[in-house]
Nucleic acid binder design. Structure first.
Length: 222
DNA sequence: AACAACCTCAACCGCATCAGA
DNA sequence: GTCTGATGCGGTTGAGGTTGT
């Protein structure tokens, strides 16, 4: 189905025409809860012709059509989330592999709860998925490991301190690019660029592991 | 079989940031 | 410089599924 290019004006015009034609009022409150297959289909259809931008417009367009069918509506935010976490192409569903888990653990150690950044290093995985996985699996795992490893905590701390120092040294780069700290967003070392595996196929995680092995200074702390 | 407790994950919410008017 | 709307992010919630008693 080919759709005409949409503008905000054309949307408003179309809505007004429909209101007049059908004598209906647009629901102010958006639909909530789980998405239906029909809503998914409508959203995918609109994004296919409009692109994944201007979510309010997309919601209006999709909501307008749904209104015509059965009075449904979704807010732009909801549409964006649904697209990013479910409908987007190349979404990798299913279990997180050991390699992926290992990468998540390493990246979380480096980046903290910056899920979108971590997700950017895991092709096909979403920030929401990783956040959920962390909260339901890894946080517990870490808790358990901490309890089990209490006896050797001092040794671990010493290792962590050494690792942290390695990161600082590695990220400092040269003296001109004075590194300010991991929490500081103005880091000169481009973490994004360094860990940008977004163009890698999921099958290449093995390669990534090997890549991390190349720089022992990094792989020890990641 | 019935119920409670726990777990998972999709979706929502509120806030921060950015861009354009 | 200020305002406003769009977008992105992380924390949280709650429905549905699973497991234990």
């Amino acid at each position: 189905m080919v759709m005409a290019p949409m503008t905000d004006k054309s949307i408003k015009r179309e809505v007004n025409q429909m209101k007049a034609k059908n004598n209906v009022s647009i629901k102010k409150e958006a639909n909530k809860g789980a998405w239906t297959a029909e809503e998914d289909r409508r959203l995918a259809e609109v994004i296919a012709s409009h692109g994944p931008k201007r979510w309010k417009t997309i919601a209006a367009k999709a909501g307008l059509c749904l209104l015509y069918i059965e009075g449904l509506n979704r807010c732009g935010k909801s549409c964006r989330l649904r697209w990013l976490n479910y409908l987007r192409p190349n979404i990798k569903r299913g279990n997180i592999s050991d390699q992926e888990e290992d990468l998540i653990l390493r990246l979380h150690k480096l980046l903290g709860n910056r899920w979108s950044l971590i997700a950017g290093r895991l092709p096909g995985r979403t920030d929401n998925e990783i956040k959920n996985y962390w909260n339901s699996h890894l946080s517990k795992k870490i808790k358990q490991e901490k309890q089990m490893g209490a006896a050797t905590r001092e040794d671990c701390n010493a290792r962590e301190n050494r690792a942290e120092e390695k990161v600082n040294v590695a990220m400092r780069g040269d003296e001109e690019n004075s590194y300010k700290g991991l929490e500081d967003s103005e880091i000169n070392f481009d973490v994004d660029e360094f860990f940008d595996f977004s163009n890698e196929s999921p099958l290449n995680l093995e390669w990534i592991s090997k890549f991390l092995e190349l720089d022992k200074g990094f792989s020890d702390v990641l």
